[in-house]
Structures are given as C-alpha cells and as structure tokens.
Amino acid sequence: MIGKLVAQDVLKIKRKGIWFLTFLGPFGVVALQMVNYGVRKAYLLQQSDDDWAYYISNVSAFSPFALILGIAILTSFMASIENETNGWKQLTALPVSKMAIYLSKFTVLVMLLFLSSILLALFSLSYGVFLNLGDEIPYLELLKYSIYPFLASLPVLALQLWVATVSKNQGIPITVGVFGVILSYSAYVLPDWMIWKWPSLLNQWNEPMINVLFGLTFGAILYVIGMVDFMRRDVK
C-alpha cells in the first residue's frame, strides 16, 4: 500500500519545481564556497594545515541553514499540492489508510532530502577536487557532514509536515519555517535542546553523533504525534 502511495506522490510533484529545489539547495551551498574560495583562495588555504577539513567546515557552515529552509519549502509545497483543490478528500476516499497517506508524504520528503544530502556530498567533493585541496580525499568526512545534518534535522521535518498538513492556511507553516531558518542561523547561541540547532551538529559535548541520535529519536516521536493528529482529524 505504501509503495503505491509513494509512487503516486512522486507523480504528483512533477512540474512543481520540487526536483529543481532538491538540486538547487546543495548546489547553492557549494556555490557559496565557490564564491568564497574564488575570491580569497590563497588566504583560506593559509588558515589551516588540513585544507580538506577546513573546506568541509566552511561548507557545513551553510548546509544546516539550507536544509531547514529546504524542509520548510518542500513540506509546504507537498501540502499545497493537496490543499489546492482539496485533494485530501479524494485521497482519503481511496482504499488507503490515513496513516499510509501521511507516511507516504513523509517518505517522499525524506527521499528528496536524502537525495539533496547525497548531492551535497558530490558537489562538495567535486569542487574540493577542483580546488586541488590535496590527494588524501576524506570521503567519509564528506559523507558524514552531508548526511548527519539531514538525520539531525528529522524532528524539524516531522514538525513542519505536521503543521503543513493540518493547517488550512499555509501562512502558518511558512511562519514556523521562517522562524526555524532564523533559529538555525543562530545555532551557535541556541541551547542544545532546540531542534533547530541540531543540524549544525554543535553541542556541548562536541560529539556530532549525539545530534544524530537525538534527531532520529525525536524525529520519530514528532512524526508519530503529527500522524496521530492527522488521522484523528475530519477531512473537510
């Protein structure tokens, strides 16, 4: 059942610019480094002995921010596809459970964001190679700093999807999303318990893995809360 719904949702996001955004997000993050290194490559290379690590830290200064922004936009798009002509009622009248409907939306979003993360790793790698940062390419680190923020951002995704699907007025999820973006931008000063800080992988223990585990756990909890609320509501 869920496979069929995912196939349906993938069909429905056609021509909505969603695929383009999935590509644009990671590209934009690396493009910022293209500007950064393009303008002052010599200076930046002097800053550290490990050019790759320094480059990765530069890339990952912007990726959490792009990720949160992407989540807000994509969830709102997904919901607006159904809200536009109240597709929810047609969807609910299909022989599928509401749980599956919600899970399918979440799955498609996770797929898109995961794709974005993989693209981020690929783009970072390509530009890094182009910059000639050294022969010892830290593939694992590149992947880690692309995938970890995504996993740590799952609670934000679950929250945004919940707000977007149950709000008639898409202004509400957009507002929540904008606040999230602002918060993630100021991750340094946020307390550790705020979900918008987690994609930055910063915490007082200096251990990114903690954010990932928190992300997975609270992502699951928020997902279940959102789903239960979605199932409970009458479809107008």
Binding site: K4, L5, A7, Q8, L11, K12, K14, R15, K16, I81, E84, T85, N86, G87, W88, K89, Q90, L91, L94, P95, V96
Partner: peptide, 18 residues
C-alpha cells in the same frame, strides 16, 4: 479534486497507481 499541474491522464494515473 484534481491536480492542475498534471494532465487529465496523469491525474487518473495517480489514482490508478493506488
């Protein structure tokens, strides 16, 4: 309910998949 950005055929295809 329909998806305006999809063709009539694609709209039905979306349901057919389910």
């Amino acid at each position: 309910s329909y998806y305006p950005h999809l063709t009539a055929y694609e709209n039905l295809e979306a349901l057919r998949k389910v």
